[in-house]
Design a protein around this nucleic acid. Sequence first.
DNA 1: TTAATCTCTCTAGCAACTATAGGTTCAAGG
DNA 2: CCTTGAACCTATAGTTGCTAGAGAGATTAA
Lengths: 145, 145
Amino acid sequence: MLTIGKLGQSAGVKVPTIRYYEQIGLLPAPERSSGNQRLYGKSALDRLAFIRHARELGFPLEAIRDLLSLSDRPDQSCAAADAIARRQLSAVRARVARLKALEAELERMIGQCAQGTIADCRVIEVLGDHTLCATDHDGLAEAAA
Amino acid sequence: MLTIGKLGQSAGVKVPTIRYYEQIGLLPAPERSSGNQRLYGKSALDRLAFIRHARELGFPLEAIRDLLSLSDRPDQSCAAADAIARRQLSAVRARVARLKALEAELERMIGQCAQGTIADCRVIEVLGDHTLCATDHDGLAEAAA
DNA sequence: TTAATCTCTCTAGCAACTATAGGTTCAAGG
DNA sequence: CCTTGAACCTATAGTTGCTAGAGAGATTAA
């Protein structure tokens, strides 16, 4: 039996976060010691590790709730879980692409800002000026309009 | 002179977000029409574009506030702005690296979950099992302990 | 003129935690 | 056995960066 602190250490999740997960129903309320402290077994550790991994993968808590409800009924089709994973994969890929573009932009900015005063430095302008911008957000702006 | 809607369209920022930026002091309060509607000039558009680009680059609003304060006094050394950009660059690189790992993990999960029931499906287990995990969060967990 | 479409202020809500206050329980050392 | 200090408890409020709603006033196009 693990205390909440040990559980948190084992799973790499902070103690208040565990209580928060319990509060919103992601984790079941565990048994308590005679002194009212939470006591967790192995299944709670598994479940929390699942949640943590899923969070790291970028799943929102609602998707995790779905996945957990699926795993509670393991005789169903895998298609739902698969669909969630596929959605997440495309989201992850989009994020990677955007961040790579941003990385290039920052590198360029820093290269232009080796020394000198802000008056000579392009950091501000690069961020402020649409026309110097290599990314595609103008397209996004138009699409949103 | 631009209304708030036009400004938002031009910069690719939603109207309530502009008012929010004004509220927290990122944008100065603009002049008003006789009917009390906000009217913006070119400098507001520049400043908002700056904010938007910086947000896209992953700068938190506090870092943007710093950068804007620097640009308001352009005779200072570029070193402060440069340091902010460098910090952001390493943060961006770390995010990219983590997301690439997650992408691989999701691809593996989906590959193993082509069809069948959840009982046969590895998605749940891959997310739940520490030992199958290719990422480095156990190290993080230990570092946090 | 009148209808549609802004825009205004204000308040409340969202995700996903994090922090604080004020108290209780537990494990180890003296 | 007792005390000390860490870890635990509940409950509430705060964080970041917006987003949504209500209800009213302004502007514009037909």
